[in-house]
Amino acid sequence: MKRFVMVCGDKGGTGKSLMARALADRLRREQCEALMIDCDGEIGSLFQFHAKLDARGEPHVDQASGGVIPIRFTGTERERDQLLACVDHNNALVLADMPAASLTQLRQFDLDTGFFSELASRDYRATLVNVLSPFSASTRTVREMIELAGEGADYVVAINQWFGDQEDFFMWYGNAHNTPSSGLTMLHEVGGIEIALPRLQAGVLVAIDDLMLSFSDARTDARLTTPQRSRLHRWMQALDDELDEAAQLLGLALPARAQDAHDEP
């Protein structure tokens, strides 16, 4: 079955676009012919860092093959419809970086078009990826995400460790004064997977963004210092280990060690 992966959420500033960039980088390293979509259009970070460029260094007119298709999902009905039209390319994997408030927008889009049913009719299985900060406005979006698609999708929740460790996420995990989030309970009930988005040192990320590099390109770029490249390498390794836990839901190649464990009786 084909995969339609959407990195989404109603709360901005959680690290959603960082996760989308990291997934795109992993797919490029795997030489996966995934169709990538930035639903923030040409201003989105997925488009800025992974768009296909022409000989002049400008975005190529044809982004469908090896680039990033920019869609303004917050725009007109015709622009929103381009998200569903992407299934016509028939790629085995589609990765979409959705804009802020995307759960609300997807709910209306599904009412208008039967989005999730249409995906299923084209042999696509949706995966919704939600990146969490510790705040209640973020954690409660997991329940909203699962209620949006129900059994019509798979779910991955990424705990963004930029914001702290497990004790800081007490609105999600619960503590002596708080019960665990209802979203956490629902995630377990629907067979969703929780992973971590490891913390990348701020200075390293700033340097990468300043040079407009993908993570893989930055790993070997001499304009970064050796400590910066080393920290980036460690972060990429840690994140790959986390992504491996949800590889099947994300349409990623399953590493040999993970495949061996998966095949064990």
Rank of each mutant, 00 (worst) to 15 (best):
V7K: 06
G9P: 05
G13I: 10
G15E: 06
L18H: 09
M19L: 14
M19Y: 03
A22H: 00
A24G: 07
R26G: 02
L27D: 09
R29V: 08
M36W: 04
E42M: 13
P59I: 10
D62A: 13
D62Y: 07
Q63Y: 10
V68G: 11
F73Y: 08
T76L: 15
R78A: 15
L84W: 04
A92N: 12
A101P: 00
S102M: 12
D110P: 04
D110G: 06
D110N: 15
D112P: 00
F116Y: 04
N130D: 03
P134Y: 07
A137P: 00
E147W: 01
G152D: 00
A153N: 04
V157H: 10
N160G: 03
D165R: 15
W172D: 04
W172I: 05
H177I: 12
N178L: 13
T179V: 07
S182T: 13
L184D: 00
L184H: 12
I195E: 03
I195Y: 04
L197V: 13
V206M: 01
D210G: 00
D210R: 13
F215T: 06
A222F: 07
R231I: 01
H233P: 00
A238K: 15
L239H: 05
E245L: 15
A246I: 12
G251F: 07
L252W: 06
